[in-house]
Design a protein around this nucleic acid. Structure first.
Lengths: 219, 219, 219, 219
DNA sequence: GATGAATGAGTATTCATTCAT
DNA sequence: CATGAATGAATACTCATTCAT
């Protein structure tokens, strides 16, 4: 959560402060500007990738949308692929952070509550997820990253399950994590269609199924 | 070429066998030849899109892989986008046909059997699905097609539910269809990772959850 | 000689005929146009490489100077390096053809005449040589081509020496060829400086030295 | 770096030793440090130009190889072209110095010895010559420098001839210098191909021819 | 109609040079 | 003065689409 949020926080406010700030100097101190620029570039990249997909997204547009010259973009991300990797890594980190918070409180949650919490993880990073999916689907060589991301998520979910029910055999937890991850993705997909006819009930249905699944296995 | 065959087989033969093929000569009637060529082109397009993604796929390679001249490709599909649309439509049609067969026998199935049948629909068209997803993810303007496809699937699933339980209120069936579609997508995703650690158990888990969900709602 | 000349012949006249020809059709027959275009492209490439060197020469300028769209240039020469290779190969072929004519009449020549003929070979392809040198010097990976070219020239010169004096041991002929090639290059260099102060006498001096060298060795 | 040392040694030490170096402290006086840095930069530039050619050589790499910040490079050489010019001037100076030593002992040498000494001049600065040629070939606007260099060499050779045979008419010496320079370049070219088949004999052949040429003209 | 050569707009990336610190 | 981050013009190459044959 932290790094993801920081990106969003770092990107938007900066533009705002640049316009409304009291400082008359036309340019921010270099170091800080570098940090802000990276954040802005990542944010812009995320947006453009999400909108157009990896291939159709152009480095020029990403730079332009970040208000940065193309040379600056390449100073920080020497390749389109590197930029994509950075974005994906950032998303992965954010996801893992969210899972960590769920794990922290897992022991105190009922199966139904745990199910709800889990299904809420993916939908909470809507924009980032859109970008991440655009990257994953468009780049064959990125399948490795994708696998690492999935593996990390599964590990995180399994850890949550064991935090909730320490007696659960690790193998069983791993298998359940795979199932739950799919349901979490389903919840995310529903979240991406806000004006879906029966979205609310469908999400409730998924939560219900997950809850039953957890109750069944965790006792 | 081999991998496309299933696509071609699924799409073309139906039409072909419907007309019959009396001519055995080396030069098929133009109509028939046109049909075969279209099928080959679509199959090639599906394979190339699935392998490289929409943007990286080139019209030249698609034509070459179908053994057709590029001009011929443009004769039938005046645009890359049109070709993608046709491919997606073909996939949608195939999916709907599968759902129709499930609907036909829905009344005779137990909830568990119905769950298993439903979750088996998406994984059965692996290659086509890969192509379809490549298209959907890479082309923002294709979201509309995607929405239509999903809507069609939901309608089909709802129809199955009502075939199984005629007393089910249409609204309820619609909402359940949304939930079930997500679980079906989960099953498909699992099918795409053949060497996944606990894939077998995870799929069973999904089927179990779906089965419970159906039993709960359909009695 | 033949292929080199044919390039020059093919490139210039075509432009002329295109402008002054009786045909009103705006475009020549495709096949022939292809041939002419390749020749024009090679000629333009030679000129631009000679003028600016390999790196500074831009594919865009080469195409423009040949009156061809950039896409056409890439249709025939998929890479700048390939274009350079083709140019070098053409130059090599032309040189070898010239040497062959010298070889044919070698037996009838006096040492002084042979020296003069040899020293006249390189200066006769001034423009092509300029391009070839620009390529050789700028591209480390082209050193191989360069070596092949030199080896070919040495073989050709040695063959001439043996044609003149069949009794000459092959090893001796080979060594002499190396020496003579350097003197031929010197003559070419002199030819590149037309307004050089004592160029005429210097060339005579080189010929004299070569003549003595030949007389000494061939009797 | 090692290969450049000879360059640095040839250029810098002369000036350095002329001033003396009394300060042993870790921070040399600015002047001296500047001199050392310039020498290092020139050496690095020579190496990089020789390796990659003028265009492919980047100012950044040159600075890095000299262990200097890019800003420092630009402090001394405000332009890549200026840097190239300086390098060429340094090479010219080194060549002229070598010729001067030959001139000093010219009167005491036999024609054969003089020929050998002259043909040894260019091969002795192999690395520097490589860099110089890379510059000359890649930059059309550098032809002027190249001409000046050649003119200087010819003057130096003519001076040697007159030192050897004071009675030689200046015009005749000038013409002979042109011829001899070409043979010297041939010797250098042979020196650049160390594993050439008959290189040794070929070099001997060149020396023989030059020796005959000198004997003929100088008596 | 069928074919495939020709076209040129569009893209990622590099690097000389500047200038704020 | 010294530094190295920032800039943006420039370049090789691709590919959807057209149209002469």
């Amino acid at each position: 959560m932290s790094s993801q949020k920081s990106t969003a926080d770092a990107a938007a406010p900066i533009a705002a402060s640049a316009e409304g700030a009291p400082t008359a100097g036309p340019k921010m101190p270099t170091r800080e500007r570098g940090r802000a620029r990276v954040a802005a570039l990542l944010a812009a990249a995320g947006a453009v990738f999400a909108e157009k997909g990896y291939d159709a997204a152009t480095m020029t547009e990403i730079a332009a949308r970040a208000g940065a010259p193309i040379g600056s973009l390449y100073q920080f991300f020497p390749t389109k692929a590197v930029l994509a990797d950075a974005l994906l890594a950032q998303y992965a980190e954010a996801l893992m952070a969210l899972l960590a918070t769920v794990e922290a409180r897992a022991a105190t949650l009922s199966p139904a509550e745990l199910a709800a919490d889990l299904l809420a993880v993916l939908p909470s990073l809507k924009v980032e997820r859109a970008a991440a999916f655009a990257l994953i689907d468009a780049r064959p060589d990125m399948v490795a990253q994708q696998g690492a991301l999935r593996a990390g998520l599964r590990r995180g979910i399994a850890a949550i399950l064991r935090a909730k029910s320490p007696a659960l055999p690790p193998e069983r937890a791993a298998a359940m994590a795979v199932t739950l991850l799919q349901m979490m993705k389903g919840a995310a997909a529903l979240g991406d269609e806000p004006d879906l006819a029966h979205g609310r009930e469908a999400l409730a249905g998924l939560e219900h199924a997950a809850s039953l699944f957890l109750k069944d296995a965790l006792g």
